[in-house]
Design a protein around this nucleic acid. Structure first.
Lengths: 215, 215
DNA sequence: CCTATATAGTTACCAAGGTAACGCTTTTAT
DNA sequence: ATAAAAGCGTTACCTTGGTAACTATATAGG
């Protein structure tokens, strides 16, 4: 018995599928389970997309790397989330960004034709799918809204505001390095450092290597 | 008889619907036709989205306006295209940007529940819908790819390259004002002016008020 | 325990581009 | 026809932030 059957059964997208069907699809190759080691590349920018992926365990990062090698993290996805949903049915089904696994991850691949059949036969799956796709678009739109044409200070304040609500505290614990934060915002680490120091001078924040406190 | 019946019948999304059904939906209010005057606002940023819209005639522009009133045009949609497709089924169904009609436009509104029924009952409509949604996401991703962290010169060259292919000529006719071009790229008009002049000095282009020629 | 590597902070220098102010030309409306 | 408004180019000034080079600390592997 496939050890991932149980994980598949509990995904938001596929929890209405019967165990028999899951077994069948795994057996006939319409479902495939792939394991990626830490720091693997799942898709290169420009690769074409013929299958939907569901993250069974681990974490996937979508990032844009420009000609000079600069990184801008666009989105992070975790267990249960889907990948490629917005792309697959496009006339240009090419991944616009690079996708990597910063930690070991297990991903279920669903063949495009099977997916289309599932969507047209099951309103429950269709509803869940449309919701996933919509939320992903929302993330993209949000990225544009927040990070295009904004100063580093505004990006940092936006991040702090979000995290402050999330962590329910004015003292925000950074569970990442400053380098990673800089990549998320899409700026150089040194520039982030400089701006943080300016913000401290201006009495807006206090910070150390592991946390930032909003004053 | 509704004068727009014919237009509706010929849309990519709904061309598989029977004339009777179109009449029925128009009669019972699940379909509604709205006319917008030149320079109307269709949706404000933050409005919530409960219906799908199909452009029957005219043009719709999606733009982001920041606190200082600066404009960045994200996308333009024409006859036959859909609006709100990516949003409606999201847990946060709020328009992330402002939508306007720069010219008189006629838009068909489709009630969300009816749309969902159509999608689950008709694989043909589902397929067309998924394709539209995917292509729209592609446009968004493309915006991020092209306009984030790039110089004005790169944006201009990207635009010229695209238009040059499209117009099949090195002499690109600008069917818009320089101000509009600047908004598309997301920069100040004066900065665009300056960069164009620099590019002329560098021997890259020649231009006047209505065209730009690539050398 | 000690060295190597990742993480951080600092700063001088410079390029890109936003702002504002001005002048000229073209369109549009009355 | 004429006034008002919109479009366009130019330029001095200044802020933002990327680059690079250096230093300091922390963490991990031997």
């Amino acid at each position: 018995m496939n050890p991932y059957q149980n994980l598949i059964e509990n995904t938001t997208l596929l929890n209405s599928l019967s165990l028999e069907n899951i077994r069948l699809y795994l057996a006939n190759g319409a479902f495939k389970v792939q394991t990626y080691a830490k720091n693997s590349i799942v898709h290169f920018e420009g690769d074409s997309c013929f299958k939907l992926e569901i993250i069974l365990t681990g974490k996937v990062v979508v990032a844009r790397i420009d000609e000079s090698g600069n990184l801008l993290t666009i989105a992070e996805f975790y267990k249960d989330d889907i990948l490629g949903g917005n792309l697959m049915f496009s006339k240009n089904p090419y991944y616009p960004m690079t996708t990597t696994t910063p930690e070991e991850s297990v991903i279920l691949e669903i063949e495009k034709n099977l997916l289309f059949n599932l969507l047209s036969e099951s309103p429950v799956i269709l509803k869940a799918y449309l919701e996933f796709v919509a939320d992903h678009t929302f993330i993209l739109g949000d990225k544009i809204k927040h990070y295009v044409n904004k100063t580093i200070r505004e990006c940092v304040l936006g991040y702090l505001e979000y995290e402050s609500k999330h962590q329910k505290s004015n003292k925000i614990i950074l569970n990442m390095t400053k380098q990673t934060l800089a990549d998320k915002i899409g700026v150089q680490r040194t520039s982030l450092s400089r701006e943080l120091s300016k913000m401290r001078n201006d009495g807006l924040i206090e910070y150390d290597s592991k946390s930032i406190t909003i004053l």
